[in-house]
Design a protein around this nucleic acid. Structure first.
Length: 482
RNA sequence: GCCUCAUUAGCUCAGUCGGUUAGAGCGGCGGACUGUUAAUCCGUAGGUCCAAGGUUCAAGUCCUUGAUGAGGCGCCA
């Protein structure tokens, strides 16, 4: 007999048919009622035993966490709480689960504890919901771009360029670490290394994506990204997944519109396809809120927050305008900011970004046209503008409540001379990036793109406050377990 | 990397001013009940108080150092 998934069974409700279900025991009540979950849905199926006619050797093995199968008649439930249930005629034990040794318990456990048991946390309602939503978001991203005519590109994970300036890199080598070969001038002799040169794990697929965009028109990457920064926060990982669209013949406005449309699309997709999982996470957050003092509770529930983002346009304003708002803000005047807003030219602190997003506008904000001095070499240089004290670039950062920067992007500098001048200023060796500059030499055109931190998106949609809880096996300083 | 806080039973946590035998809820185990919904009821076991050193007649409690975890900041997606 073929196994029916619980999701399908609950969807079609084939009453009075013989079914076979398989899953993990979530609860065993009254020696009689098994709550069974197989991961296909957050909902459990109730399996009812005829306890008087079931071998005690079998019932003794029906423990929280055990893997079992149940064959029987699907019938209308006599109890409240579920429409249907399976009257079991046979129970198959696949895998026992000793409750004295199993770290999980049928009760709330802290995210910190579960993180230490990340190999088992999929079994919890919360994490099962998170990882189903993570999948749905990944799928929605591919669907969004595919339906718009974008081509998914796989960019290299091992790269020889260390000129991207996006952060510290992990070195990749096969040289023996206990006996590193040296040149005559006592430098590490990378000519003996696997690739014949120094290599690293990628910090961004952008530069390669640009090459593809300048032929295929509209492309995106969706791959792992590595940063060897010693970051200890709730929104940084050493290994994370990033989506990087790149569009030919697009300017900064097109870029912002694409990012906004994509974010709203995928959030709407989650609301439409993951309602039950979102409900679990929303209820979890409501419970958590109860432990907080009144003034620290959030005004909106999780789904209200998500609806709000898809129903409202993001605010677009320039860095220069943001500085004005911040300078005149009451926390700045009252000296409430830990870092007072000095003036034009310095980067915004996260408390400033949070003020703009969470207090002033109360919605996602796109900040644009940052000072050139604080942004990357490849961003397009703006024309001088009245009221703007210094040179700016066509950059944009999308800031979300609670998460901060979820997207960072720009229109790219397509003019060869301007790009070369900028690289010289920032001491980026042209020689290493000859291939990047070639796109500006041969058929260059205006183009733009951005990077979306996938885990930050998953964080926002699931309401998980720590980024380490939205990726199965997080990598961060001092931790590469599992 | 910097700052703050934490570490007590399997889990979540309480432990007063340093005082004699370290507690609760949940979970586990045993039993009762048998249409339950994190079932309920009764009983029961369970402790290297993070580690090392120090102060003291006396340390879970105070001090020092370290480890681990959390939150904030920086780096950024």
């Amino acid at each position: 007999m073929r196994r029916t998934k619980i999701a399908e069974l609950l969807r079609t409700e084939p009453i009075d048919t013989e079914v076979l279900v398989k899953g993990w025991v979530k609860a065993f009540r009254n020696n009689q009622f098994i709550a069974l979950n197989d991961g296909s849905t957050p909902h459990n199926l109730q399996v009812v035993l005829d306890f008087e006619n079931t071998d005690p050797a079998v019932t003794d093995r029906i423990k929280f966490g055990a893997a079992i199968g149940a064959r029987g008649q699907l019938v209308e439930s006599q109890g409240k709480g579920q429409k249907v249930e399976v009257k079991a005629s046979e129970i198959i034990i696949y895998g026992d689960c000793n409750p004295e040794e199993f770290p999980l318990q049928p009760k709330r456990q802290s995210p910190e504890f579960l993180r230490e048991h990340a190999h088992l946390r999929f079994r919890t309602n919360t994490f099962a919901a998170v990882f189903r939503i993570r999948h749905a978001l990944a799928y929605a991203i591919h669907k969004f771009f595919n339906d718009k005519g974008f081509y998914h590109q796989h960019t290299p994970i091992i790269t020889a360029s260390d000129a991207e300036g996006a952060g510290e890199m992990f070195q990749v080598t096969t040289l023996p670490l206990h006996k590193i070969p040296r040149t005559e001038s006592d430098e590490i002799d990378f000519s003996q290394d696997f690739f014949g040169r120094a290599t690293n794990l990628t910090v961004s697929g952008q530069l390669e994506a640009e090459l593809a965009a300048l032929a295929l028109g509209e492309v995106y990457t969706f791959g792992p990204t590595f940063r060897a920064e010693n970051s200890n926060t709730t929104r940084h990982l050493a290994e994370f997944w990033m989506i990087e669209p790149e569009v030919a013949f697009a300017d900064l406005d097109d870029n912002m519109s694409l990012a906004e449309e994509m974010l709203q699309y995928v959030i709407r997709y989650a609301l439409e396809h993951c309602a039950d999982d979102l409900k679990i996470l929303e209820d979890r957050l409501i419970e958590e809120e109860k432990t907080k003092p009144q003034d620290q509770r959030s005004e909106m529930s999780l789904t209200e927050k998500l609806r709000f983002v898809i129903d409202n346009q993001f605010v677009r304003l320039t860095y220069t305008e943001a500085i004005d708002i911040l300078k005149n803000s009451s926390p700045n005047k009252k000296g409430k900011f830990q870092f007072p807003v000095e003036g034009w030219g310095t980067d915004l602190q996260s408390e400033h970004e949070r003020y703009l997003v969470e207090k002033h506008f109360k919605k996602p904000v796109i900040l644009t046209n940052y000072p050139a001095a604080i942004k990357a070499f490849y961003m397009r240089q703006d024309e001088a503008k009245e009221g703007v004290p210094g040179p700016t670039v066509a950059a944009m950062d999308i800031l979300f409540p609670g998460i901060g920067e979820i997207v960072g992007g720009s229109q790219r500098e397509e003019r060869l001379e301007k790009l070369q001048a900028r690289m010289k200023e920032m001491h980026i060796p042209e020689k290493e990036l000859y291939w990047y500059l070639d796109t500006r030499r041969f058929g260059s055109c205006p183009h733009a793109g951005f990077g979306l931190g996938f885990e930050r998106l998953v964080q926002f949609v699931t309401g998980m406050t720590n980024i380490r809880d939205v990726i199965a096996f997080p990598r961060y300083p001092g931790n590469a377990e599992f």
